[in-house]
Design a protein around this nucleic acid. Structure first.
Lengths: 183, 183
DNA sequence: CCCCTGGTAGAACGCCGGTTCTACTCCTAG
DNA sequence: CTAGGAGTAGAACCGGCGTTCTACCAGGGG
């Protein structure tokens, strides 16, 4: 069956908010791209703020799913922490990440107090939280997580600046690995 | 003598654009904070776009100056590449960087084709360019630069997410160092 | 059969913010 | 002394965009 208006809106918003920026994307543009009535946006999300929040929430959901799928295949604690990079490469191959992290971008663009801000912060909290769980078994877990988090955020920005995912993500993985091993 | 209106505007714009976001900061807000007439903004910068461009240009200028000052004190090629982190720590201590990199933020917020976009890109070009020059003498310069760039961008994002500069910058420096040495 | 839910279509409102304009003041170089 | 550049103060314009409202339509469960 045809996807619901809600889903179509969310997909269109995702592409536009991520590609052109949140402030630069009008509700009208989302409506046009989704091929949907303006009212449907307000029926489903209550307004642009709600739409932005749902957009980040959905992206968070999708990311966690692909990461978990990849992490499940990792055997050792080392491979498990480094699975963020494998998941990221997978993510880039079918979604692209040439605008960096949508949640960091959200934090930059949204005014303090915007409902979507806490979603973005929760996304990042979850990142280090989950990294710590996956690193269990390694010595100095906190140190490892802090290092991996730096490299992870860094590679996202580098891609935003035009770096090739296929080249830079493996490099980041290696970088994080030697940081963990050569301590 | 009292600073010129142009300078006052630039300082106020810097604080507001960086702290609250570019799109979220109206020209009026800049005018109020600078204690200046609205006309002075348009006399000096031609409009908000020009002001944004000048804001990023000035920040680029300031950053290069502090980096060069720090880099000049480094004796070995290793210390020279790693001087970005020393400079960053210095920068954070008197300007703060709790919103991450202003140029990356600019790229996220500004529509494609905005005059300030090329300023931001030039800033990042210069970063890797200068890193390569400073790394001269080390084996595999390109690899080193790519790694350091990742770590540098990463630590900026981590600070934006609330990490303490005094803790995370030294960690990033160490991280980059072991990446270079344990190759 | 009917009503409720979800969706459509389009007009209209209202505000915010970037921009422009005019008139006035102060200071300094020539 | 004076002309011009820099700055001020404030009003006014206007376009974009988020939001609201009304009227209408399809379908499925009670």
């Amino acid at each position: 069956m045809a996807p619901s208006a809600r889903e179509r809106i969310l997909v269109a918003a995702s592409e536009l908010f991520y590609g052109d920026g949140i402030a630069n994307t009008g509700v009208d543009a989302v409506v046009d791209r989704a091929g949907v009535a303006l009212g449907s946006v307000y029926k489903n999300f209550g307004g642009k703020d709600g739409l932005v929040e749902a957009y980040l929430r959905r992206r968070d959901h999708l990311w966690r799913a692909t990461w978990e799928r990849v992490a499940a295949d990792a055997a050792t604690p080392l491979d498990r922490v480094l699975s963020v990079f494998d998941a990221l490469l997978l993510w880039c191959r079918d979604q692209g990440a040439d605008q960096g992290c949508a949640h960091v971008a959200g934090l930059v663009q949204l005014p303090a107090g915007h409902p979507a801000v806490e979603v973005a912060l929760a996304h990042k909290d979850h990142l280090v939280q989950r990294l710590a769980e996956l690193a269990a078994g390694l010595p100095a877990v906190d140190e490892v997580v802090a290092d991996v988090a730096i490299v992870y955020e860094g590679v996202l920005v580098r891609m935003q600046l035009g770096a090739d995912p296929e080249e830079v993500i493996p490099r980041a993985r290696k970088l994080a690995e030697t940081a963990i091993l050569c301590r």
